[in-house]
Nucleic acid binder design. Structure first.
Length: 1086
RNA sequence: GCGACGGUAGCUCAACGGGUCAGAGCGGCCUCUUUAUAAAAGGCGGGUUAUGGGUUCGAACCCCGUUCAUCGCGCCA
């Protein structure tokens, strides 16, 4: 057995792997074999990569220096019985010093510890959060008590006799085709902060989340699942499959949003595929139709040949693409001499340049810039060809076509090329020379091949020159030659080929016809389908459009256009950040008419009957209403199933041509039309929202990512201005992009995304929420596992601070124990002033959506004001004073008010943890069942007066404290003192500092955490640190002159004497049990 | 290519309309305590405010250029 004598030693441990929470040291006797002389378990908290922890051990007794040593770690999830051997955790250890020391001269072995008479913090609030387990339990409780329902009910109750003002955040629907990503979590998290903070600020703020369900991504997925079967299935079955697919993700995302702690009407979110929503969408379409905004037209639109549908501008993304660019000569067939006498009798050509050879079969014209000079470039040989190109591009073209010996023989203005004619290089077609101002000298030849069916510019030029816009490329992108134009019996090789496959075949044909002058692949950015990421084409088709130039009545009653009217409304909205206004204004100002039709099935049908003769729609408001009614009952399926005869009587005639036969339009609406109608389908129609939304003056917020300027903000604005003559929102806030730690955009290919659900499952939703609050969402935000871990550290600190607050509130009953404000000690009053100040700032930041400032301010408050200062200096008072003493009650009153304030201020962000804290707060008769049913604290409730003077005074006082602490630190470095309580201070000061110190003389000991402070006048500020006189009180560890025995307790100060008596602690006798006094050194690792 | 927004310590953020030597918190390093203990406290480092000019008595802030990052628009033959 160990003999008398103790060893002090220090151990250096580093953990490169996981946490080390405790370790065991086993000592073996010198030369001994397997006989441990003792072992001891040490608590530790060593984080990964922390290099060392020095432990000065109080080893009880050793007979000789130990030699063999073992070190174990104990995983906290396992009992001590199964220690993990050191090497498993990659531990490095050594015993640096081992020396003997005299046994403790004050063995208190036979007297119960004085520690048991202290009022240490006591609470069941667990230090370890265990969020992944605890949060789901909390969610279940909330669900059980129908917390959201209770919040809604409470919102109907007046505050101070006044009804609550309304604040409506209308949810923008995420697309229901996958699990959540961080962007979703950010978006819903921010919305949750807004709704919760508005609610707690006394607003009536309902939140109905929604989902966007229609559209291509889902239909394509369903196509893949159904395969060829789809072609034989009735439309209703296809729709049912799409609905099922979308519903799966609606359910999944709902569960994930709920898991993140977002409150809302999750048991009844809106979905754009619901019967009712579909009917409302159709209603909105009819609104446009009946208002004269809609027209049907043949226009080139972006067309995805893979998805076989038209695409809106907003559905285009530019990606790099390689195109074969070709220079092609078109032979002049009109009189060359008409252009210039110098050309008489020559073989004249113009040269066009294109990157889409497949459009050449549709080539109908060559466009020239009227303001350019064009030159005729002649071959050196007398009867060689002459080429017409823009003067500015001549050199470039000659080089590209390797015609360097060609020389200019004449030049003339571009305008004179109008109405010249050319021969198509391989079709029996005459090509017309036309003028167009969009022809530039950047690229090409100055002579632009014009195919009205495959380009917007080309199309409008075609309209001016009366060219045929018929498109000979079908839905799938297959090219068909017009046999009437093809001179040979055998069709050309490109006939029946898809456009991109036709390119090389057409180039070959040009080569054969001697029309190809040069060819080169170019790598350039090219429009792609945002869904399938395949290159799109321009293709003229019959589409439904909403005209931006539709005449409407302006706000002042004057005649204006839909576009202008919309821009007027933009001006009445508050855009946050403010540049959003400019962005959306520019978009509305320059956008083309809105192509709202899609040639797909998964969506709201454009439910219109068309005359089979003249293709004009029937315009009949009653008919429209009946169709809306049908959709209301049976959803979009109704349109596919209804018979025309059930919609109109046999006597119905086309208003235009008198024809009596009609067909159903089969196109569906653009999905942006769906979500753009949500203000109508939801905000204006849902009974939970409409009373707010339909007020003439109302606050309606849309909060989405900045990309929605071209999306939901945009389509919602157009729909609402057209149908209600006002913007659907009064405020629009936008969030930035989530990036990775290196500032790169998150993408699947980089694999740098952060999965919010994964973080919630591993670390807790609170960590995700805290991250959201930590960043300035208006800018782009960096996110990574690493940053999440950092938030988790902050979380731990906040949680532990709450725990300490609660621990010190033990035994405090507000009704009987709270002191009125004017009886509080000065330090406590100061802390309430700080809390008031914090509260006022936080409330302001909530209303300005500056959540990151809240995060930082509360964090700083908890760490600097509370943990490092107030809670630290309060320990003496809290632990050693009699529990019911006025000074201690003063502190508790303050701690209580601070906790009540903090828990409310943090509730919108840390929704789970604050609820947990809430349940541990002192009981009150009128305490709400949830922190989320409470209101924010009012600054004036915390501190009734203007806090500024007191705050200023304490600012100076704390600066003096810093000086004193520095002096203490110095002494500690010089080994003159250890704990601050071992010191006493003499502070010399003059002037205002002296006044201040004297005013707070009785508080200085506490706020400096030393045994004694004396203030004396002096020439300059000087803090002298001395070892405290008197002896140490074994209870409060202060050094006091009045220390004397209390029963068997030898050294107890006067203050503690009184406290012990007040607590009615009987003086102990020396024979009291010694059993509990020492560490269980006999515990074995075996 | 055009436009918007931004670049402040390793990280997240401050610094009210130009005015004490640019501040916090975290992390890092060092120390202290064992009476918040899988915890608490103190100290120390750390920034030529992306960069180059300019205006000013004075610039992180205002102006111009450059650069990097992100978003948006355009990309047409």
């Amino acid at each position: 057995m160990p003999a008398a004598g103790a060893a002090d030693f220090s151990v250096s441990i580093s953990a490169s792997g996981g946490f080390i929470t405790s370790f065991v040291i086993v000592l073996y006797q010198l030369h001994g074999r397997g006989v441990p002389v003792g072992c001891r378990i040490y608590p530790a908290h060593i984080r990964p990569h922390r290099s060392s922890l020095h432990y000065a051990g109080g080893w009880q007794a050793l007979s000789s220096a130990p030699t063999a040593r073992s070190l174990f770690t104990i995983d906290d999830t396992k009992p001590i019985k199964s220690p993990v051997f050191s090497t498993a955790a990659d531990l490095h250890w050594n015993f640096d010093t081992m020396q003997s020391k005299e046994p403790n001269s004050h063995p208190a072995a036979d007297v119960p510890e004085l520690k048991s008479t202290l009022t240490l913090p006591q609470t069941d609030f667990p230090m370890k959060a265990n969020l992944p387990q605890r949060e789901p339990q909390q969610l279940a409780l909330w669900s059980q008590m129908d917390l959201y329902g209770q919040i809604r009910k409470a919102a109907a109750e007046p505050i101070d006799g006044k009804p609550r003002p309304a604040y409506l955040l209308h949810d923008g629907p995420p697309y229901a085709n996958g699990p959540l990503h961080l962007g979703h979590a950010l978006n819903k998290g921010l919305k949750d902060f807004v709704v919760k903070s508005k609610t707690m600020a006394g607003f009536n703020s309902p939140y109905v989340p929604g989902y966007d369900c229609h559209g291509l991504p889902i239909e394509i997925k369903v196509d893949e699942q159904l395969g060829r079967k789809k072609l034989e299935m009735p439309p209703a079955d296809v729709l049912a499959a799409c609905r099922a697919y979308a519903q799966r993700f609606v359910d999944l995302q709902t569960s994930q949003f709920v898991r993140l702690g977002c409150f809302g009407r999750w048991n009844a979110p809106y979905a754009t595929m619901s019967r009712d929503y579909e009917a409302r969408t159709l209603e909105a379409f009819y609104g446009f139709l009946e208002g004269g905004f809609v027209y049907r037209g043949l226009k080139p639109v972006y067309w995805c040949i893979h998805d076989r549908t038209a695409l809106a501008d907003a559905e285009i993304e530019y990606e790099m693409h390689t195109s074969p660019s070709v220079y092609v000569r078109y032979a002049l067939t009109s009189d060359p001499a008409a252009l210039s006498p110098a050309l008489a009798g020559r073989s004249v050509y113009t040269i066009i340049w294109t990157t889409t050879p497949w459009t050449l079969p549709a080539s109908l014209a060559v466009a020239f810039q009227p303001t350019f000079d064009y030159v005729a470039l002649a071959a050196p040989e007398p009867n060689g060809p002459v080429y017409l190109v823009a003067a500015a591009l001549a050199e470039q073209v000659l080089e590209a076509c390797k015609l360097s010996e060609y020389k200019e023989i004449t030049r003339f203005p571009g305008a004179s090329l109008e109405c010249s004619t050319y021969q198509h290089p391989f079709l029996n077609r005459s090509i017309l020379g036309v003028l167009a101002d969009y022809v530039t000298a950047d690229q090409g030849t100055g002579a632009v091949h014009t195919a009205p069916s495959h380009g917007a510019d080309d199309f409008y030029t075609g309209v001016r020159y009366n060219l045929d816009p018929t498109c000979r490329v079908d839905n799938a992108g297959v090219l068909r030659v017009d046999p009437a134009l093809w001179p040979e019996a055998e069709p050309p090789a490109f006939d029946g080929k898809k456009v991109f496959a036709a390119n090389p075949l057409i180039i070959e044909l040009l080569q054969q016809r001697g029309a190809l002058l040069a060819q080169q692949d170019i790598h350039h950015s090219y429009p792609h389908c945002w869904r399938c990421h395949k290159p799109v084409i321009f293709r003229a088709t019959e589409q439904w459009f909403i005209g931006l130039e539709t005449p409407v009545i302006g706000a002042d009653g004057s005649q204006t256009t839909f576009r202008q009217r919309t821009i007027e409304e933009i001006d009445r909205v508050v855009w946050d950040p403010s540049w959003g206004k400019e962005r959306i204004t520019n978009m509305i100002a320059t956008r083309p008419d809105w192509c709202i039709s899609r040639q797909r099935i998964w969506g709201v049908p454009i439910a219109v009957l068309l005359c089979t003769s003249c293709n004009q729609p029937i315009l009949d408001a009653d008919l429209n209403r009946r169709i809306v009614g049908l959709v209301e009952q049976k959803g979009a399926e109704a349109w596919h199933e209804v018979a025309i005869a059930d919609l109109i009587g046999p006597e119905t005639r086309c208003a235009h041509c008198g024809h009596a036969e009609f067909r159903k339009e089969t196109d569906i609406l653009d999905v942006w039309f769906d979500s753009g109608s949500s203000w109508h389908a939801v905000a204006e129609s849902d009974p939970d929202l409409s009373p707010i939304y339909n007020q003439p003056e109302r606050t309606v917020l849309y909060l989405e990512g900045g990309d929605q300027h071209r999306g939901w903000f945009h389509s919602s604005l157009l729909a609402s201005v057209a149908l209600r003559n006002r913007a659907p929102y009064s405020h629009v806030a936008t969030a930035g992009w989530t990036l990775d730690e290196q500032g790169r955009a998150m993408s699947k290919s980089l694999g740098n995304g952060v999965d919010p659900v994964d973080v919630a499952e591993k670390m807790g939703a609170e960590i995700v929420r805290l991250w959201i609050a930590s960043v300035d969402f208006r800018e782009d935000m960096a996110a990574s596992d690493n940053l999440m871990r950092r938030c988790a550290e902050i979380y731990r600190k906040l949680r532990n601070t709450f725990r300490f607050l609660l621990g010190n509130l033990h035994g405090f009953q507000p009704a009987t124990d709270a002191l009125p404000f004017d009886q509080l000690l000065p330090l406590d009053r100061y802390m309430l002033a700080r809390t008031r100040d914090l509260t006022a700032r936080v409330l302001g930041w909530y209303s300005a959506f500056e959540f990151h400032r809240i995060y930082h301010a509360i964090n700083e408050f908890a760490i600097s004001d509370l943990s490092a200062f107030y809670l630290d200096v309060l320990k003496d008072r809290m632990y050693t004073f009699a529990p019911a003493s006025a000074a201690r009650r003063s502190a508790q009153t303050t701690l209580w008010q601070i906790t009540e304030a903090l828990v409310r201020l943090m509730a919108p962000i840390l929704s789970f943890t604050t609820e947990e804290v809430w349940n541990y707060l002192p009981a009150l008769p009128d305490r709400a069942a949830s922190v989320h049913l409470s209101l924010f604290p009012r600054p004036s409730d915390l501190y009734p007066d203007d806090p500024a003077p007191l705050l200023a005074e304490w600012k100076s006082l704390l600066e003096l404290r810093d000086v004193a602490l520095l002096a203490l630190e110095n002494s500690r470095q010089n080994k003159e003192i250890g704990k601050s309580l071992e010191a006493e201070l003499e502070i010399a000061a003059h002037g205002a500092s002296l006044d201040l110190l004297q005013k707070y003389a009785s508080d200085l000991k506490e706020i400096l955490n030393v045994s004694r402070v004396t203030v004396i006048p002096g020439d300059q500020l000087q803090v002298t640190v001395k070892p405290a006189t008197g002896s140490r009180c074994n209870r409060c560890w202060n050094f006091m002159p009045s220390v004397r025995p209390y029963g068997a307790w030898q050294d107890v100060c006067e203050r503690c004497h009184q406290a012990l008596q007040a607590m009615q602690v009987p003086p102990p006798t020396a024979s009291a049990s010694a059993a509990a006094s020492t560490v269980a050194a006999s515990e074995s690792v075996q």
